[in-house]
Design a protein around this nucleic acid. Structure first.
Lengths: 199, 199, 199, 199
DNA sequence: TATGAATGAGTCTTCATTCAT
DNA sequence: AATGAATGAAGACTCATTCAT
């Protein structure tokens, strides 16, 4: 019962935050949508900001974990495959978590009170991606700073296309192949011996 | 006189929006910083939102124009140079306009009332980049959708690294070469005949 | 069982009312301190105000009764002794009931909803003291109004020193002798024939 | 204009605080009574508590100052006259400031957030009274602690009768003579050589 | 044009009380 | 008798905007 109500609040909040943004979503909107009284909200969350933090931190931790290569997840199948796999997986994760990622993208840095969440999230994701680069030796000879730049570049790339196609244009995974193909078309330096896009 | 006051408001607003965000910046903060009375603000702007729109639209139009290849700006010097030049130029533009671009990135989609500004801005930039791709035939054989995806990917890439290095880390243009080099290291498909990163 | 719970509530309430005051003490604080559920409170008291009234009225009635000269309690030992005894006894009663008297002093008139309790209490105490004055003929020739004034003056005097020494300064009965001596030093008209304090 | 509004708020607040108490008086009540908008209140006071503190501290400082014997205020006319004069003066001051003193008595210790005001006030008054006792050598041979006890006793005495006659019973200064006479009837040790109450 | 005092709708949050179990 | 989740009315405070001067 208790958990159900808490979940109902989170569900309503995510929906409304995405629709109207954090600032325009009132606590009264959330509880109305969740079908409960104003006071009930405060049984489960200390404040509106606490709700945001709770949800965001929880979801984002899951996303970072999902990105982390698990032992067998990325068997050494060669660089080309690896990168293609990583991009596809990341796009899928983005798609599955598009609601919270959208909210984060929209409010991450916009509200000083919750800016640290986004900052830490991007920091974590960057570390994971750098780790992958190192593990598969994707960018041999790169300094740590160069790896970091590359990681952020890739993250920005993925985030932007995911935002435009999954959120703005509202597509689903039917665009996955096309997006992955194009993104790999940009990321070809790991495949110096193969032909580029064209096949 | 009139123009000076208007400009002073814009200047203060940009500073404060970047420091504290749109929602946390009160009109009273702006006028206090600008050294004028509360009511004066409304002689120059219909509302707080109007101020944001005025500033954003104006700045963003300039940025889009700056990105547009002018007749002599991109002489046909070959694909390799072109892309390198575009990335450098864009990074420089981002650096020069980092304040407004930061604000836009932070509030673009966060506030429903001003979301359309960001949407239109990205749409315009995307068109310009697609135009460049077409003009120099960077991605031959690509459909329009593929070009759009590629354009957004490049924009996301640039925006993310610029944000991280120029805003978060606070670097200046001394990182330009390194950033450009790395970004070109990702974007190599336009240079099938040259060596990759080159080191 | 039932009585135990009720007493536990009263005990916790007195403690908390004294610590934090009536308004700052929440029903939830009381039940938490008493180790029971929120709803249990309302099995024993109609409301928070009802709790206050119940406790206050009960305690205060005891105090008034304690002040009343019982048949053998104040044997006619002469005026000097009488007054000294009354002051000592009253101070002791104040000390023993310092919790509720402190609460009453603090909230007596502060909260309109419970103001009548304090008003009635002081009225009763005044009557008792007047009765003592009459019984021992302490202020011969005084009109009823003068007696009432004197009674209130003595009550105010005792209450203030008791508050300052027993509550604010936190002393115990070790200051009783000194306080009584000083108070009697002020109240000397009842002893025209004896030496004053004894220096 | 500005001062007028601020004064109007104070005036309304004092009236309402006295009528209904601090906690039962809403900011909305105050501004309604003062005939202005809710927001106007916050132009002049940071919060409801700030209003209370501002008013209380200001008034109480005045009262303490008024109690302080000024050079010619208490010409050396002998102890008997002095004490009589002090009691009369204090009663008059209490009467003139009965509103704020009543509010202080009612809320002084009742609200933890403003308890320090009352504590400091009584501390100050005690010091002033002790100073008077010392100056006129009213209680020769008393230790400082005894003087402090006596001072608090006198303060409690005066406060209680003033509260009962000026506030509860609503009398004005027509009772001054009678009250002073009775209080002096209690305070006779300073006049060993004169007749007591005199009738 | 400039001022800044005044406005009041809007929002979060609290907490005494109720009620289904 | 006991629980504790749920309620919702109420109140302090904010801040974009207006307007008389």
């Amino acid at each position: 019962m208790a958990v159900e109500k808490r979940d109902k609040i989170i569900e309503s909040a995510l929906k409304l935050f995405e629709q109207k943004g954090y600032h325009s979503t009132k606590v009264s909107d959330i509880v109305k949508d969740a079908g409960m009284a104003q006071g009930t909200f405060y049984l489960y969350f200390k404040s509106k900001e606490d709700l945001f933090r709770s949800v965001a931190e929880e979801c984002l931790k899951e996303i970072v974990d999902a990105l982390k290569p698990e032992s067998d997840d990325h068997p050494d199948v060669g660089n080309g495959q690896m990168h293609d796999g990583l991009i596809r997986e990341t796009l899928i994760i983005y798609y599955q978590n598009r609601t919270i990622l959208n909210i984060l993208k929209r409010h991450g840095a916009a509200s000083p009170e919750i800016a640290d969440i986004a900052k830490q999230f991007y920091g974590n994701v960057c570390e994971v991606v750098k780790g992958i680069f190192k593990h598969y030796n994707v960018y041999p000879g790169y300094t740590d700073e160069q790896l970091e730049m590359t990681a952020y570049a890739e993250i920005g790339m993925l985030e932007m296309v995911a935002y435009q196609w999954f959120i703005e244009k509202g597509y689903g995974l039917e665009k996955l192949d096309l997006l992955a193909e194009v993104l790999i078309g940009i990321n070809v330096n790991c495949l110096p011996e193969t032909d580029v896009i064209g096949e």
